[in-house]
């Protein structure tokens, strides 16, 4: 009798550990990147589960490189962080270039933000954060979404606000851009209007070339007061401005 009970206990233990094991399945044989998408559902005994991840989806390209990973958080982690799930995007070198965070209903009610998108430089620093607002917040503020640009000091250098249709119709304003100094003080505001899409007189941008060893820097000045479609370019090492039309 005792032997039978022992055997039964062992069988039950085996069955239970089998039930708790990870399940891996291919959920898409040919995804948007030309490769497969695998889904792993973790058991409560797995370390990743303890870290708060219940299910992960790995999206590969045709060469087997991972380009996207989705993590769905456990209830505990959702309560702790206010994030329901995230999506990480990677470049061809495996570096994360973008992360999307989808917030829980509770967190959305607290912050008025549904989704945030974080953009990363190759050194891992965040350079831009886009926040997409809830309908409730949009009704309250008239702002549909904001984009925060982060400077090398980790502080926001510029914020863009894009307004809802209702606010655009009411105030005739499409978007605003705020510039901040190092102390967090707004030093400049630009407003953009839907009909004219006019730029300020002498609106300029500072630009640097990318993908080259030594970046070329220039200042692009869009408009002159009397000639709206004429501008000029000043290169950092140039002798004089170059007119553009």
């Amino acid at each position: 009798m005792r032997k039978t009970i022992y055997a039964l206990v062992i069988v039950l233990m085996c069955m239970s550990s089998f039930a708790l094991a990870d399940t891996i399945k291919v959920i898409n044989q040919r995804n948007e990147y030309g490769g497969t998408t695998n889904e792993i559902t973790l058991s409560p005994t797995e370390r990743s589960y303890e870290d708060g991840v219940e299910t992960s989806r790995f999206h590969y390209d045709s060469n087997g490189k991972i380009l996207k990973k989705e993590d769905f958080y456990t209830d505990h982690k959702q309560r702790e962080t206010g994030t329901a799930n995230i999506i990480n995007y990677y470049d061809n070198n495996g570096k994360m270039v973008k992360k999307e965070e989808f917030y829980t209903d509770q967190k959305q009610r607290e912050t008025g933000i549904e989704i945030s998108r974080f953009y990363y430089e190759s050194n891992g620093k965040i350079v831009k954060i886009e926040d997409y607002h809830t309908d409730q917040k949009q009704r309250e503020t008239g702002v549909a979404n904001t984009t925060n640009y982060i400077g090398s000091n980790g502080k926001k250098a510029k914020v863009e606000e894009f307004y809802t249709d209702q606010k655009q119709q009411k105030d005739r304003i499409e978007a605003s851009r705020f510039y901040y100094d190092g102390t967090g003080k707004i030093v400049k505001r630009e407003d953009f209007y839907p009909e004219k899409r006019q730029r300020d007189v002498n609106d300029f941008r500072c630009l640097k070339s990318i993908g080259v060893k030594t970046p070329v820097r220039l200042q692009f000045v869009f408009t002159a007061e009397d000639k709206p479609d004429v501008g000029y370019v000043i290169y950092q090492k140039g002798n004089r401005p170059i007119a553009v039309k």
């Binding site: 993908g211 200042q219 950092q236």
Partner: peptide, 18 residues
Amino acid sequence: QFKFEEDLEAWTEKGCEW
């Protein structure tokens, strides 16, 4: 073709300071 991105750190009210 040469691609550029905005250089926010160079921006000042008076113009780009590199």
